[in-house]
Amino acid sequence: MPNITVELLAGRTLDQRRQFVQAVTEQAEAILGARRQDVRILFVEISGELVAKGGVLAVDAE
């Protein structure tokens, strides 16, 4: 059973998440041979105040 954890900045819409899990699940089936019902995806939302890239907080890079 594939367990896939996705870390992303908060703010994605429900529709974006639906599209993402559909696409990732299809690829897990095709590439890994996983059964659709066994693909588990967990979203971990990260606040822009808690992550930085290139020395700049994500909240300041917007």
Rank of each mutant, 00 (worst) to 15 (best):
V6P: 02
L42N: 04
G54M: 02
L9W: 09
A61Q: 05
V51A: 13
A52Y: 00
K53Y: 03
M1W: 10
K53F: 04
A10V: 15
P2G: 02
V6F: 03
I46M: 07
Q16T: 08
A58H: 01
S47T: 10
I46W: 06
G48N: 01
Q37S: 12
A23M: 12
R35D: 10
D60R: 11
L32K: 02
R17S: 06
P2L: 02
N3A: 08
R36L: 04
G55E: 05
D60C: 10
Q16I: 03
T13G: 12
T5M: 09
P2D: 02
V51T: 10
T5N: 07
R40P: 02
V44K: 14
T13W: 08
V24I: 06
G33W: 12
F43W: 04
E62C: 11
R35K: 14
R36G: 05
A28M: 08
L14F: 13
V39I: 14
V24F: 00
T25W: 02
T5I: 10
R12M: 13
L57A: 03
D60N: 15
T5Q: 12
A52N: 00
I31Y: 03
A58N: 04
A34Q: 15
G11W: 03
Q19W: 07
D15M: 07
Q22T: 15
R18V: 03
I41F: 14
V21W: 00
I4A: 05
S47F: 09
I4E: 03
T25R: 09
R18L: 06
Q27N: 14
G48P: 00
A34E: 15
I4T: 04
F20N: 04
E29T: 07
V39H: 13
E29Y: 05
V51S: 12
G55N: 10
V24R: 00
A30G: 10
Q27R: 15
L8K: 11
R40F: 12
E7I: 06
L14N: 15
L32R: 02
P2W: 01
L32Y: 05
D60K: 13
D60W: 07
R40L: 07
L57I: 03
A34C: 15
A58Y: 01
E62A: 13
L57H: 02
E7V: 07
A34R: 12
Q19E: 15
T25H: 06
A61V: 05
Q37A: 12
G33I: 10
A61F: 04
A28S: 07
G48I: 01
V44F: 11
F43Y: 09
V39D: 11
D60E: 14
E7H: 15
A23L: 14
G11R: 02
R35A: 08
V24A: 05
E26D: 11
L9N: 09
E49F: 03
V21H: 00
L9T: 04
L9P: 01
G54E: 01
Q16H: 04
A10I: 12
G54W: 01
F20T: 11
R18A: 06
L50H: 11
S47I: 11
L42T: 07
L8M: 15
R36I: 01
A58I: 01
L50A: 07
V24Y: 01
R35V: 05
L50E: 04
